[in-house]
Design a binder for these strands. Structure first.
Lengths: 334, 334
DNA sequence: GTCATTTTTGCAACCGGTTGCAAAAGTGAT
DNA sequence: ATCACTTTTGCAACCGGTTGCAAAAATGAC
């Protein structure tokens, strides 16, 4: 069934090399030869086997797209942008789901078996050990949404989570909140740790505040809701305003508050992080810190592509500024 | 850098075939030989090149996961389940994003170049022409969430959308609604067409009803919200109750209604379809028809796997029953 | 220990391409 | 037509594996 180089060569009455050359650009083929070959190829419906050619060229154009984040709707957009961006450059995403995976070795082995040209780790909750493991295996890797200081030898594209923490703190202070809460994502996630650090750092400049913090189990609606319900029960009265680890978490928190009869922002203020599409939905209208994910992803793709040419490129961190998107879950500055 | 079969063979002092055989199960190797080879392999950190072996075996274990639905949060769960399910069986998903793609030929060529063993088309909005094109190219294909009558020669796994339409109609009738609306997804989507057909069929049994229908541009929050806003403006008064094409659409509709001061379910009733996670969120609490996506996906994977053994398997449609999940967006039966 | 039978091993060809090299063909000047 | 020079072409080896086949080694019965 599958038609090969040889078939085309025979039909066109030329050598196999000639056929190969007409399909690799930059090769030396006369116009006449090209016409002959292309004619035979279309008649036979030939398209070259990318995997076979990868054997000699050493390039598969396969990029491992590695993530463990399949519960935060923002990652649907992330996958959308990554897959389209990669496709547009002739690269193919091999999706690897690392949910519940703690051992980098398996993934490394797997991606090596498929000779991926590079790997994008798209996650803010996956241990930096994964990106490092790929790097150590000699696979070009970019960690998108990662922490830039955790693995200086790995390329990182993302935001400055510490600064985002500060930004959230300033926003709450500006509005005169004094009993303030941090409701983070998973405590082990570097993004949570950094946001917390920046947040506390900024708050520390203003003495006399009452600050509490706690963590949800995951960046998810359910976890946010559960954690806020716990606070309402065990830790009442809750703070005047919360910085939540993430939008989807915020939305869970919002739902718990509404169920408990608390009005937002009159009784409790909320600021999230990401600016996922849902945050702008009119029945949610979440004030949040916008993370420029399109730019992050574009840059990640450009970087991984550059590494294909230059695998030992000196590692860099590409950080994109975030900005506050004001909607209706914080009271206005007085 | 990459260590090959030959390296291992030399190190172990055996033939290349011997090494190959220890890594293909079912091959004849003595225990002693296996030990020798495995020792050398681990010392060198060898893992076989799956792509090279695919050349002779004709199996890549690559499965094209094709979709155009990157805006409906339910598809994040779909991707999660597919990727994990495939991985668990030693298959690798090659993700293909067909957003804005109308021409099947490109995708077919691309997937052929990568010699995927099979394809799963996961979409209820993608034209059946895609699944057919893969089939015609000789690639085993399963259309998940597809319409079973559109391409009898293609395997389909999903639900009976016509029956779901009937089910929604019965649910509304049971509750005494008489001014009834259908607010569908994209009119070209087979899922929308079928749900509409079933819905109207059931309603037709009850004369004297007042039934309207219209379509949103996409299965998305934004589209649902926009369409309901249009109805509120141009087509008031709106119906007593709507069957919406999909949950995320329903949530958009809900938001438009709330903004317009309409209470749900007191003024307007709503029933969706899917039972996505968000439908159960307490601030939404959408009554909906549950589509058993775990089962659909599991079955799709089993089916595509079976087709690897038997590519010309007689085509079948696997349909899973849906059921109504009652929450709080329909008034109770009187 | 011999012999027939089974298991294990290596050789060599092959999978579908690419590529260095040298021969063949084309080009232009004389 | 000849020659020097450039471009195009085909040969053959190779990429990293697999596999049919026959030879070698192991097994077991006698």
């Amino acid at each position: 069934m599958p038609v090969t180089l040889k078939d085309v060569a025979e039909r066109a009455g030329v050598s196999r090399s000639a056929v190969s050359r007409t399909f690799t650009d930059g090769a030396s083929v006369s116009a006449k030869m090209r016409r002959k070959v292309e004619k035979a190829a279309t008649e036979l419906g030939y398209s070259p086997n990318a995997l076979a050619s990868s054997l000699t060229t050493g390039r598969t154009k396969l990029i491992g797209l590695v993530s463990n984040n399949f519960h935060n709707p923002i990652f649907l957009e992330v996958f959308d942008l990554f897959t389209r961006g990669l496709q547009d450059r002739g690269l193919r995403p091999l999706l690897v789901n690392l949910t519940n995976e703690t051992e980098p070795d398996n993934s490394v082995r797997m991606l090596r078996q498929y000779s991926v040209d590079g790997v994008v780790v798209a996650s803010s909750t996956l241990s930096p050990a994964f990106a490092r493991a790929f790097r150590d295996a000699g696979i070009p890797v970019v960690h998108s949404f990662g922490r830039y200081s955790s693995s200086p030898q790995v390329h990182v594209v993302g935001i400055d989570n510490v600064e985002c923490g500060r930004m959230a703190a300033r926003e709450l202070l500006k509005r005169g909140y004094r009993r303030i809460g941090f409701l983070g994502g998973p405590e082990q996630a570097t993004s949570t740790q950094d946001r917390f650090a920046g947040f506390m750092e900024e708050l520390a400049k203003h003495p006399g505040l009452n600050v509490k913090h706690s963590y949800a189990d995951a960046y998810s609606f359910k976890a946010g809701r559960a954690e806020m319900q716990r606070l309402l029960l065990n830790d009442a009265p809750v703070a005047e305003a919360y910085f939540c680890g993430d939008d989807v978490l915020s939305i869970g928190v919002l739902s718990a508050l509404q169920d408990a009869g608390q009005r937002v922002p009159e009784d409790v203020g909320l600021i999230g992080l990401n600016d996922m599409e849902m945050a702008s939905w009119e029945n949610i209208s979440l004030t949040t810190i916008r993370q420029p994910i399109r730019q992050i992803i574009r840059s990640s793709i450009e970087l991984v592509e550059a590494m294909l040419e230059e695998p030992d490129r000196y590692p860099e961190a590409r950080l994109f500024p975030c900005s506050v998107v004001e909607r209706r879950t914080l009271r206005s500055a007085h």
